[in-house]
Design a protein around this nucleic acid. Structure first.
Lengths: 183, 183
DNA sequence: CCTAGTTGTAATCCACTGATAACAAGTTCG
DNA sequence: CGAACTTGTTATCAGTGGATTACAACTAGG
């Protein structure tokens, strides 16, 4: 019971959204239960639904949220040094918040749902465009950059990347190549 | 009703497995219902369960199946020309059976489940090793190759790739870069 | 202070889904 | 033939999970 704090709906909504990002990142759209998100946020399950209307809308909000954060990180990195190379070097920032790429991945996976698919397509396209605008990269350079990001994403999902990763020889070998940008 | 054919359990199991690959590829692990797979295969839902024991085991069988097929395609391509470049050129073969990469993607997404995670990690590691053995590529070259594959995979999931894809400017621009292997 | 609005919960619903059990129909082989 | 086995279904269950409703508790402002 302790201290029962009362927040505005907007504030509570943000806390629920943060919990949702974590939960969806870990278990995906279909795999995550609204009750789980509710417990993480310290509220009741019906309240989660009332705040966002629908589990689907909550997931969409989570996708929007992580995409905005990803774009923010890219913008910050480009402000320091507007070259593709330095953006790539800053993948570490993305990996330090693994839920970002994980939610995006689960968005891809759930693209079969029309509404979610529309959202994810638009957001991914915007990220591609942003990368090109920030760095002046050619389409092919941007493609290679995003491809690397996608490999990092699936390796995160497989839990073979990062500090508390499952150590596997092939994964460590792969990870060791990420510093070496050729050329 | 037409002709009610009776097959051996092994034969029927293969048909169910084929249906499962299609269904899981489209809707993912949690998102696919065993009843849907049953209808696709033309059998009853309980029979699907009896043939494979569990939905999870059926999904694992689907992952194993697509990974074997992927490895087979790589081996065939390498037999024609054992260079990484020509393997890459044969991504078209993979994309002509979109369910292959899609099931793999949903495997990544479902890696939170221990059993599925173990399976996917082992299989992906085997593919990485196979690519290196077939082509003699360095870890970094293999990494770039796999990264490209992962981008193709997520673009397939977003349905912005291939013949009946949703046409989006950014996606078409990206797709046009795939022929040009730099160097 | 007291009414109107806001934040939040408890109770409950109901559709769905994986799984089990019991049984029917076909096949094989001595 | 007929007993033993295999293939397949129907009926059904038990649990779950998202959503709705009604209500409680707190807050603000006139």
């Amino acid at each position: 019971m302790a201290t029962r704090v009362r927040l505005t709906a907007a504030e509570r909504g943000e806390e629920v959204l943060r919990a949702a990002v974590q939960a969806f990142g870990a278990s995906g759209y279909e795999g995550t239960k609204t009750d789980e998100i509710a417990r993480m946020a310290g509220v009741s399950q019906p309240y989660v639904i009332r705040l966002f209307g629908t589990k689907q809308q909550l997931f969409l909000a989570a996708v929007q949220s992580v995409c905005e954060r990803i774009e923010q990180i890219f913008r910050e990195a480009a402000a320091e040094s507007p070259e593709l190379r330095s953006l790539g070097h800053n993948y570490e920032r993305l990996l330090s918040e693994p839920e970002l790429l994980l939610v995006l991945l689960h968005g891809f996976s759930a693209s079969g749902d029309r509404t979610i698919g529309d959202c994810v397509r638009e957001r991914f396209g915007a990220i591609y465009t942003l990368v090109r605008e920030l760095t002046g990269a050619t389409p092919q350079e941007a493609r290679e950059f995003l491809a690397t990001g996608m490999l990092l994403t699936v390796m995160s999902a497989m839990q073979v990347l990062g500090p508390n990763a499952i150590p596997l020889p092939w994964a460590q070998e792969l990870q060791s190549t990420f510093g070496n940008d050729n050329e």
